[in-house]
Design a binder for these strands. Structure first.
Lengths: 216, 216
DNA sequence: ACACAAACGGAGATGCGTCTCCGTTTGTGT
DNA sequence: ACACAAACGGAGACGCATCTCCGTTTGTGT
């Protein structure tokens, strides 16, 4: 008796390969990426994909449970930071970068898919976020009317930016988040320099004018 | 000779009905809304839709040229506001509300579709935005490192939030924008009260815990 | 080595939204 | 009123991603 699990070895291996391929495809193309392509990249047949993950939702959920888990770990570390402001702001920046580097992650945040009730994790993350925010408020470093939901609004905003342009996403999201965080601090807190400005989109079509296009 | 246009009267009427129906469907369902449903709502056949707008893109473009036009008008008004800060911040809030009330508008902003080169409008909007931002910077009311692209980042962020939850979108976007604008002002500027906090999403699945769920 | 269940693969059925085609209707100018 | 082009409608062809089914292969326990 060598069995370390109820599953056959090849089944476990294929499941792993599928999750990896799906992660890659979703990161590149968003959660609408083709399922058949995922199967192809994983080197398995379509049937195998559907046996492991009966619906797209099941696959998305499995892939992003992992990402959410990573951010939860970061979150719990951030709660213990010596400086509550540093813990708070660095966590938001770190998650923003994850969003900017993974189109699919931004997708699930924006659309709300792939996050069916996660039981214990849900409560753990909620409790940790409350702690993160309340420490920062208590230390007098962020505005007293700040809530957990406000921090999530910032992430939703970052996801909107990240979703746009894979190329400049990281730089754009960082600039956005740093400036937004300046609005979260208590009035008069000292500000550091913001990261460089990035052109992500223009209001009417692509900007072929360049920065030299002056008024008049 | 009664012709006021090269188009037949029924053709013009149907075009109008199609634009209206498309605007409604896109606002509710986003720009992926079914084209056949748009034809049905407009009370015309599918063939008529495709004759007027050969591709989905053409229809999206026609619908949102209108929305962009509205924001451009608001923008040019904002440039003339007595108080540059008021003009600047009110414009961003006004466009945010438009985004929150029209899922399709948020879509085109996030995805960048429906905004092929718009010629004169592109330059007009760019020039107006430069003026709006530079006036506010010159008056010393917003941080001196602020750029046009930063204002667009805020709108992209607002679109990300608006995209999420039609129900609470307006309230959420307002709270977001007001707080973000606090990060745009010069350090130490006096802050007004922020609109109430709104729960838009939780990190792991729906929050059934409620606000009473305390740490520990 | 054997036997049996578990898992696989991929051709093709299914479902669905997009788009076309053509017989019919409706404006328009005379 | 007539004639002709313009525009219409909607049934159904098409394309495409999803998903199933079953003959074949591969682990696993004895």
């Amino acid at each position: 008796m060598t069995s370390t699990s109820v599953f056959r070895a090849d089944a476990r291996r294929n499941r792993e390969k599928l999750l990896e391929a799906a992660g890659a495809v979703f990161a590149e193309q968003g959660v609408q990426g083709s399922l058949d392509e995922i199967a192809r990249r994983a080197g398995v047949g379509a049937g195998t994909l559907y046996r492991h993950f009966p619906t797209r939702e099941a696959l998305v959920e499995a892939v992003f449970l992992d990402r959410r888990g990573q951010s939860l770990v970061l979150l719990e570390v951030a709660c213990e930071a010596d400086d509550p402001w540093v813990g708070f702001s660095e966590w938001l920046l770190a998650v923003s970068r994850m969003l900017a580097e993974d189109r699919g992650f931004a997708d699930v945040i924006i659309t709300g898919n792939g996050s069916k009730d996660q039981g214990a994790l849900r409560k753990r993350s909620y409790v940790a976020m409350r702690k993160l925010v309340s420490r920062a408020v208590a230390s007098g470093q962020i505005r007293s009317d700040y809530t957990v939901d406000d921090a999530l609004l910032l992430l939703l905003g970052a996801a909107g930016i990240a979703h746009r342009s894979p190329a400049e996403a990281v730089a754009a999201v960082e600039r956005f988040m740093v400036m937004a965080l300046d609005g979260v601090r208590e009035t008069g807190a000292r500000r550091g320099p913001a990261p460089p400005s990035v052109q992500v989109f223009t209001w009417f079509g692509p900007n072929t004018l360049g920065p030299e296009a002056e008024d008049g």
